[in-house]
Computed example of a mutant assay.
Amino acid sequence: MGSWKDHVRARLRQRDQTEKVPHVGVFTSLAQLEERFEIRKQILDDVQSKSLERGGGDTRCLHLELRESEHLADKLSQTVSDLAAVLHVKEAELQYWQSRVSQYRQEALQLAKGSKTLKVTLSEFEYTIECQSKELSALCAEHKRLKEALAQAWSEKEKLLQRWMEEKRVEADRLNKYNDTQERWRRLAKQLKKHLLRKMGKEYVPAGTSSCSDTTETSPSVIQIILSSGIKTTTNIHPGQMGP
């Protein structure tokens, strides 16, 4: 608030130095000239009255004094008119500067109010920024924690995946071995069946005189003997000697 007042005072002092100070002695000179004019006028009146009483005198001298007085009166009237014009201009300038000062005062008040509002808004923004910075710090910490948890989860996932794949591989190997074993036993059983059928066809050829009832009664026992003998012979066979 003090800066604009100082600026206005400085401008007014500068105006006084350039416009008012040079004309300070004019008013004194004007008063002195008016006083001289009044004195000369009185003297002229006295001289004219005395010349009329004498019936004529030094008319030439009086005429010169009259012309001098008229000239001085013209100069004084011109000076007075000039001073009046200058005074009128100065009064107009003074009114103009007073209006400008009033305008500047209003603008200064408005700027002060705006500055106060801006300060309040700035304090609110600072508080908001502080709150947001705290929230950002908390979010960064939470993000870091979640990132670490995500990395740990990915690591556990990779471990579980590797373990699952290992278990599946072991299970697949075991299943393949089981399937291979089953296939070998199936082939072995087929070979044994063929072998037993050939052996049964050679040893137990049915006689022409035997009846169907005898063949029916003796066939189960014969099959059991063949299977028992076949099982005994197969137990002696090593799995590596079996064909595919």
Results as ranks from 00 to 15, higher is better:
S3F: 09
W4A: 05
K5E: 03
R9Q: 04
A10Q: 04
L12H: 05
L12F: 14
Q14C: 04
R15F: 15
D16M: 11
V21W: 14
P22M: 06
P22D: 01
V24Y: 15
F27S: 11
T28W: 14
L30I: 14
L30K: 03
Q32A: 15
F37L: 11
E38A: 12
E38V: 14
E38K: 15
I39R: 10
I39S: 03
R40A: 08
R40E: 05
Q42A: 06
I43P: 00
S49R: 13
S51C: 11
G55M: 13
G55W: 10
G56A: 10
L62F: 05
E65L: 10
E70Y: 11
H71G: 07
A73S: 12
D74C: 05
K75M: 05
Q78L: 09
S81D: 12
V86I: 02
H88Q: 04
V89L: 06
L94F: 13
Q98F: 12
Q98N: 13
S115H: 10
K116Q: 14
L118Q: 01
K119F: 06
F125N: 09
E126V: 15
Y127C: 08
Y127N: 09
T128W: 15
C131R: 04
Q132K: 06
K144C: 09
R145P: 03
K147N: 10
E148L: 12
A153V: 03
A153L: 03
E156P: 01
E156L: 11
E158C: 07
K159G: 10
R163E: 06
W164I: 13
W164L: 14
M165V: 06
E166S: 09
K168Q: 09
R169H: 12
R169V: 14
D173E: 15
L175M: 08
Y178N: 00
D180Y: 07
T181L: 01
E183A: 08
R184F: 09
R186K: 14
K190N: 06
K190G: 08
L192I: 10
K193N: 13
K194I: 04
K194C: 01
H195I: 03
H195F: 09
M200Q: 04
G201C: 02
G201R: 00
K202A: 07
K202L: 13
Y204R: 00
Y204F: 09
V205C: 00
G208V: 13
T209M: 01
S210K: 00
S211F: 02
C212T: 02
C212Q: 06
S213A: 04
D214T: 04
D214E: 10
T215W: 11
T216G: 01
E217K: 00
P220T: 06
I223L: 11
Q224M: 01
Q224D: 00
I225G: 02
S228N: 15
S229A: 08
G230K: 03
K232N: 08
K232E: 15
K232L: 11
T235W: 13
N236K: 15
I237V: 10
G243N: 14
G243E: 15
